[in-house]
Each structure stands twice: as structure tokens, then as C-alpha cells.
């Protein structure tokens, strides 16, 4: 948010303070860099690698947006945010977009004056316990101590779940995933609860991953997705359609490798519009016509991003499940690009 403040004193004291909001899209273009709110470190979703480059499922979406707006997927600055600081960072204009395993809820959408523009991962809250605890269901956790990240929806779901099942627990509130892991591994809590994907990611980094199991119960719906400030619809559209472009790319078989070839040879009208070969879809939301082609060229389609960061075969080893395309029985569905 750009803010200009005029201070004027006329005949004693008269003061005018004016805050003007320019569009986030213009700000990003003027800056030449996208500022993306990311996780403080969740393997597979958003974390710096050994050489300090941010990698992950959420990170790739940020890069796709940067590629669409600026033509270069590397022009992103990542600002790590915790569960507590993330929404304030977005509201105050510290970040342009928040892609950080954030659950879309009614009160966040309305009261917090945010807009969730899409769901890039359909998730649910689960529990992880050590195998030798001998627990096979979350309902057996009566009296357990549970590590929980503060400032999250999971904190509230946890309270509801235990109340509904008439069992008790002791919460240990932690700030982020790494602290939760430390407490959990040190035995300060019997169970660690967060989004199931987060648990899988967390388990993947544990030295003794095989000794931990994720309990079968999924106690909530956690649609995770990119968030923008309420009131800047144009920027919301940019983020939303960049994401959908990645989905459509998977649907149409456009990959990072063949995007140029598809642009040249495809006869599918939707593909041509998406890749900017025909029509003027990009300029309609203030982007280049090749914006979405750039996004796909930078990070690949949704399926590629999923497979590379968190899919089967990676350490996190998550199945597509609900996140398969709608054509394959999942929930990922993009509106038509026309």
C-alpha cells in the first residue's frame, strides 16, 4: 500500500491526512519484484534449500505469479511469516500476496478483510504420534498433551474435536513447525496436530520418520490457498488466474518443457488464448499477453509442481487425492479460460 500523508497547518491548526491506495499490481511492476509471504520453513511447501533458494509447492506459485507479472520467476522476495504474523504482514502491505498454507475461513475472508482467491491444496487436520505410544485413533488420545501451532484454525478445531468426543487434552502452544517438531521429538507432547500435509512434510524431515504415524482421522476441512488484501480485485484476479492457468495447463497437457512448442503448434483455442497466441486475455487484467505462458515456463503446470515438491516419490510422499484434477476424481477445477 502506498500512502501519502499531507500535513498542513493553516490558520492555527487544520490538518489533512490522506491515505491513497494504489493497485498492488502497479506497485509490483514499479518495484520490479514480487514480495511473497511464505512459511518460516515447511519442507516441500516453502523453505530455503541448502544454498538459500526458496523452494516448495507454495513457493512455486509465488514464482508463477512473479513470472506472469514481471516475466521472470526469480524476481520474488520471500518474507517468512509465522501463523501469528502472516495476516498482519499482508494487511499492512508488507507482502503483496500470502502463499503460506493458510486456511480459507469465513471470518478470515470477512472480518480480517482478506480475500482467499483460490485453493491450491485441499487439506484436513490430522494427528501425528510416535508408534510406540500404541495409539491407532485420535479418539484414544484422552488426557494426552498435544502440540499445536498458535494463530491457526487447527488450534480451534483441536478444541472442538476433543470437546465433541468428550475427551480431555493439554495444549502446548508453539509458534511454528520447527518448534513444534522440537517439542514433539523431545517428548514434551504426545501428539502433534496440524494440516495433514504439514504433518507429512514435518515427518519427512525427522531423522526417524518410520517411528511416527499419522492417525487416520482427518478432523477438519483445511482449504489452503493464496491470500490477498480485500478491496484490490484486480490484483486478486491476477493471482487467481495465474493459479488457474497452472491448472488448465495440466488439464491440457502443457508442461514446462513443451510450453513453447504448444504455443507454436496447438490448435486448441483455449490453449492458444492461455498461452497468448490468440486473443488479448493478458492485457485485460493489466498483464502481457504472454503472462501465463511465462508462468508455466517458469515453474511448470500444477501437476508438475505437485510432483516435484510434495508428490509421490519425494520425501513427503503425498498422494494427489483431493488435489487431483476434476477429470481424475479430484477437486482441482479451473473455470474456462475465455
Amino acid at each position: 500500500m502506498k500512502k501519502s500523508v499531507f500535513l498542513g497547518t493553516v490558520a492555527g491548526a487544520t490538518m489533512l491526512a490522506g491515505a491513497a491506495m494504489a493497485g498492488t499490481l502497479d506497485d509490483v511492476k514499479a518495484r520490479g519484484e514480487l514480495i511473497c509471504g511464505s512459511n518460516t520453513g515447511l519442507t516441500g511447501f516453502g523453505t530455503p534449500d541448502a544454498s538459500g533458494n526458496w523452494v516448495g509447492f507454495d513457493v512455486d506459485l509465488c514464482r508463477a505469479i512473479a513470472a506472469a507479472v514481471l516475466g521472470d520467476g526469480s524476481k520474488v522476495k520471500f518474507v517468512p511469516t509465522t501463523g501469528e504474523t502472516r495476516f498482519t504482514a499482508l494487511q499492512s502491505g508488507e507482502v503483496d500476496v500470502l502463499v503460506r498454507n493458510s486456511t480459507w475461513t469465513f471470518s478470515r475472508d470477512t472480518e480480517l478483510a482478506l480475500d482467499f482467491v483460490a485453493v491450491n491444496y485441499y487439506d484436513g487436520q490430522g494427528f501425528m504420534v510416535k508408534k510406540d505410544l500404541g495409539v491407532s485413533s485420535a479418539k484414544e488420545l484422552d488426557g494426552a498433551t498435544v502440540c499445536i501451532q498458535t494463530g491457526t484454525t487447527t488450534e480451534l478445531n483441536l478444541a472442538d474435536f476433543f470437546k465433541q468426543n468428550n475427551i480431555s487434552y493439554t495444549p502446548v502452544t508453539v509458534a511454528d513447525d520447527s518448534e513444534a517438531q522440537r517439542q514433539y521429538l523431545a517428548g514434551a507432547c504426545d501428539a502433534y496436530t496440524t494440516d495433514a500435509s504439514g504433518l507429512a512434510a514435518s515427518r519427512a524431515t525427522m531423522p526417524d520418520a518410520d517411528n511416527h504415524i499419522i492417525l487416520p482421522e482427518i478432523i477438519s476441512k483445511e482449504p489452503l490457498g493464496p491470500v490477498v488484501r480485500h478491496g484490490d480485485s484486480n490484483w486478486g484476479d491476477v493471482v487467481r488466474w495465474t493459479y488457474y492457468a497452472l491448472l488448465i495447463a495440466e488439464e491440457k497437457g502443457i508442461t514446462k518443457a513443451n510450453v513453447e512448442e504448444m504455443a507454436g503448434s496447438s490448435t486448441d483455442e483455449e490453449v492458444k488464448r492461455l498461452l497468448g497466441v490468440s486473443g488479448d486475455m493478458g492485457p485485460k487484467i493489466g498483464l502481457d499477453n504472454a503472462a501465463f505462458k511465462n508462468a508455466i515456463a517458469a515453474v511448470g503446470n500444477y501437476g508438475e509442481i505437485f510432483a516435484a515438491n510434495i508428490g509421490e516419490g519425494t520425501t513427503i510422499n503425498l498422494a494427489r487425492g483431493l488435489n487431483a484434477l476434476w477429470t481424475q476424481g479430484g477437486l482441482q477445477y479451473a473455470p474456462p479460460f475465455r
Binding site: M1, K3, V5, M15, A17, G18, A19, M21, Q91, A113, E155, L156, L158, A159, D160, Y169, T170, P171, V172, T173, R229, H230, G231
Partner: peptide, 28 residues
């Protein structure tokens, strides 16, 4: 003035009514 304008710009209002809403979390 600045606070009021920024609150207005973000569509937020200033009131303490939330204190009487259900908390929903547990304290150890």
C-alpha cells in the same frame, strides 16, 4: 487521524465487542 483512516481503508472498525464472543481455544 492516521489510525482511523488506515482502519477505514482496511474495512476494519474499532470496538471491543469481540471480548464477549466465544474464545474457542484452550489454555493449559
Amino acid at each position: 487521524n492516521n489510525t482511523a483512516q488506515n482502519l477505514a481503508a482496511r474495512g476494519k472498525e474499532f470496538n471491543f465487542g469481540f471480548l464477549w464472543a466465544r474464545a474457542g481455544y484452550d489454555i493449559n
